[in-house]
């Protein structure tokens, strides 16, 4: 099977998976316990008002009609109207997506870079102090609860240290920018970076350990291969052996990991976004689940599914290009 046939088969599979996912997403939320109107049960909103809301949201219509409306909303690009805000879900997502991409994108890049470097470094010196330290540190940070580290950093660097140092060390308590933000562009960008620091450190600290441990194990395995011995025998320097011969061989599984983490870049991080009051997709989705806001849940999960499925497709295609032996 040539690459073209392989690619077209993968694309067809992807479309089928996407359609199945879309269908499941509609029905799963409807069989889940909870009722969107349940969150409007308040004496300030009597029964007749709540019934009017149900009619307004279209939840009184037959399920097949609701499903068709859902499909129309998905393919029209608006992704429906949120029950809670009455705004188009696509607008609300677009409002939050840049923040999430900024936080998750920068954190993911740093996590991967740090994890791979540490993994390669530890794997190349198996049993050394560096290896032991990397494994211990990696395990420790990987197991550290995000909420604990996040709160610790928040209270230390945004509350206790600013008071103790008279504002010399002073990180923000909340948000993506100061409230109100600086007016000049440069100051604005610096302000965003200042706000990004603590949540990013939280995510990188709790994330890089996993990458480091996997890459270390892969590297240990690869470095015992014959072709590495050959490279050494040829007199290549250790850096070339590690990165050009060793790391290159473990790239496919690492590419898979990176590909799968792409959906996280879009999906956000619920706990970190909440602790640092970060206006992103993760918190948006979490609130939607709490409030049974079906259109938001469907729209956001659709986006996540789309990114995950497309990332998988891209990874598969890259696999095909990276390793000509791969033809499923």
């Amino acid at each position: 099977m040539g690459f073209r046939a392989y690619a077209s088969r993968r694309i067809t599979n992807t479309i089928i998976i996407l359609l199945v996912t879309i269908t499941l997403q509609f029905f799963i939320f409807r069989v889940m316990p909870g009722n969107p109107i349940g969150h409007f049960i308040t004496p300030n909103l009597p029964l007749e008002a709540r019934q009017a809301l149900v009619r307004m949201w279209g939840l009184d219509r037959p399920l097949h009609e609701q499903f068709l409306t859902y499909l129309y909303n998905l393919f029209s690009g608006k992704l429906g109207i949120s029950f809670v805000s009455q705004r188009y879900v696509s607008d609300e997502i677009m409002e939050r997506l840049p923040n999430t991409i900024l936080l998750m994108g920068s954190a993911t890049i740093l996590t991967i870079a740090l994890g791979i470097n540490l993994g390669v470094s530890a794997g190349s010196r198996r049993g050394s102090k560096r290896d032991v330290a990397s494994v211990t540190f990696g395990l420790l940070t990987e197991g550290l609860p995000v909420f604990f580290l996040g709160l610790l950093l928040l209270l230390t660097f945004a509350y206790y240290l600013p008071i103790a140092t008279g504002g010399l060390i002073n990180f923000p308590v909340a948000g993506t920018v100061s409230r109100p933000p600086p007016t000049s562009l440069l100051n604005y960008l610096l302000d965003v970076l200042w706000h990004l620091t603590l949540p990013m450190i939280t995510l990188v600290t709790t994330g890089f350990g996993g990458y480091a441990l996997i890459v270390r194990n892969l590297m240990i395995d690869v470095l015992t291969q014959d072709y590495i011995l050959t490279a050494r025998a040829k007199g290549l320097d250790s850096r070339s052996i590690l990165y050009r011969h060793g790391l290159r061989s473990v790239l496919p599984p690492i590419t898979t990991m990176i590909g799968l983490s792409l959906s996280g870049i879009v999906g956000g991080a619920v706990i970190t976004e909440t602790i640092f009051s970060w206006h992103g997709i993760g918190r948006y989705l979490y609130e939607a689940i709490l409030q049974s806001d079906y259109p938001v849940m469907q729209g956001t999960f659709f986006l996540l599914s789309l990114v995950t499925i497309l990332a998988n497709l891209v990874v598969d295609l890259i696999y095909g290009l990276m390793d000509p032996r791969i033809r499923y």
Binding site: L155, P162, I163, V173, A174, G175, F276, S277, R283
Partner: peptide, 15 residues
Amino acid sequence: VFHATPEAAVAAIRK
């Protein structure tokens, strides 16, 4: 000003 958690809000007023 929005704070998503009570920890952040209490820190903000005390700070």
